[in-house]
Design a protein around this nucleic acid. Structure first.
Lengths: 227, 227
DNA sequence: TTTATAATTCATTCTACACTGAACTATTTT
DNA sequence: AAAATAGTTCAGTGTAGAATGAATTATAAA
């Protein structure tokens, strides 16, 4: 098949009203059952099942079986990136006034797959670079010796992260900020760490992340970030 | 409207079979008339006109009037980036054997909007960096003093490019290579220069770019790139 | 001026494909 | 074992929205 038709096929696969909402729901990197996705997209289970098998066939999502449940999640971070990039067409409207409150909050701080995205996430990178905790090397971030201690103090053991199969700390383009944030094992560890310490909290049914007052003072102290 | 529905709307806008083929055609950054786009998408002019007005409304494309012709082109480079990112889901399949010959050629060298993309384009960046002709500074490339002379010798006046309104040489993520190439005024100037000198040639009806034998030896000499 | 070409608008038709209900398999629970 | 829950398959239905034809506007060429 010609490339343009392959493109057209994948575009219409993503572009269906219901499937696009499902993909949007899956953008937090979590795994959901068919029923859960059916409810959030407001369709029957049969219909959801049908859509999910189409997304599976195109390898946009994958499934894990657990007993009578089947958990669906995005196939990989790259799919998440594509969805994010499409969403950037609505999120970064020049005219601030037209941006909904919800969109603004998402632009400030949200999860993307398993790491942080939005303004906060790129400010973290800026601060870590300025403090020489991380450095940029081609396509990924590296941690300085000082940085290793800094992360240990934060509660993240950098060495053990490096043993994971996945990439350690690659750059991930933030579509609302048009700058990079940290993805990979380190990006995931930072999100987990901040959540565990209650610096930030997830909100129900959205990828939006809010900064707690504890988080506000800690981000200011450790990273010189003013919310 | 909730963000998920805004996303769904833009996704289905792009995701229509015919519109996606039109957008794919526009990806070379050139402007086409409604009739031309109708022919390449194999539909009537009325239908094309209808689709184009929808894409206009969403600000994905814009139009320039010239006499009785109306020339349509992508609204900006960002839209091109989004289309490219979606296409990356088909272009970078792990299983090489399944890649069509056409897709392989596109992955090697193609135009993206008004600059080069693909393997060749990121190799150019690598070489220019190694030779200290350009350096990376945050989100854009900068040219060294030595680099200025080097580009003048190539036939590109860097100073006059800087006076253009558009960004000079920002980074642009290459979706097949997952690394950056040069966009902006410099990226466009390089593509133009290479075409004029017949180092590379456009092919009809595709974004594919081929390297001439002259180009092969010049790229080897000037940039140490072996095709 | 007339004729040809480019593009759009609108009312109508058409169809791809999403949705539904019913029947089914596979687990878990009681 | 029976009942309940999760999910799928499939044949038939329904509809959003794409395609079309006819009419209209605008510009260019003859």
């Amino acid at each position: 098949m010609e490339v343009e038709n392959q493109f057209s096929k994948i575009a219409s696969l993503i572009g269906d009203k219901t499937r696009s909402i499902m993909l949007w729901s899956l953008l937090d990197g979590k795994a959901y059952t068919a029923t859960e996705l059916a409810v959030s997209a407001n369709i029957t289970r049969q219909s959801a099942s049908n859509h999910l098998s189409k997304l599976m066939e195109a390898k946009l999502i994958l499934v894990e079986k657990q007993g009578r449940h089947r958990y669906f999640r995005l196939a990989n971070e790259k799919v998440a990136q594509v969805i994010e990039s499409m969403a950037s067409l609505i999120l970064d409207e020049k005219i601030e006034i037209k941006k909904s409150a919800e969109a603004k909050k998402l632009a400030f701080a949200r999860t993307c797959y398993d790491h942080l995205a939005g303004k906060l996430s790129v400010e973290i990178v800026t601060s870590l670079m300025e403090q020489k905790i991380i450095t940029l090397n081609d396509n990924s971030f590296e941690i300085t010796d000082y940085g290793k201690d800094w992360f240990v103090e934060l509660g993240i053991n950098v060495e053990s992260l490096k043993n994971e199969k996945r990439s350690f700390a690659h750059k991930c383009l933030d579509w609302t900020e048009r700058r990079h944030h940290i993805a990979g094992a380190l990006g995931a560890a930072i999100l987990k760490n901040f959540l565990e310490k209650d610096w930030i909290r997830r909100k129900q049914n959205t990828r939006e992340v809010i900064v707690t007052s504890l988080g506000e003072s800690m981000l200011s102290e450790k990273l010189k970030i003013m919310i």
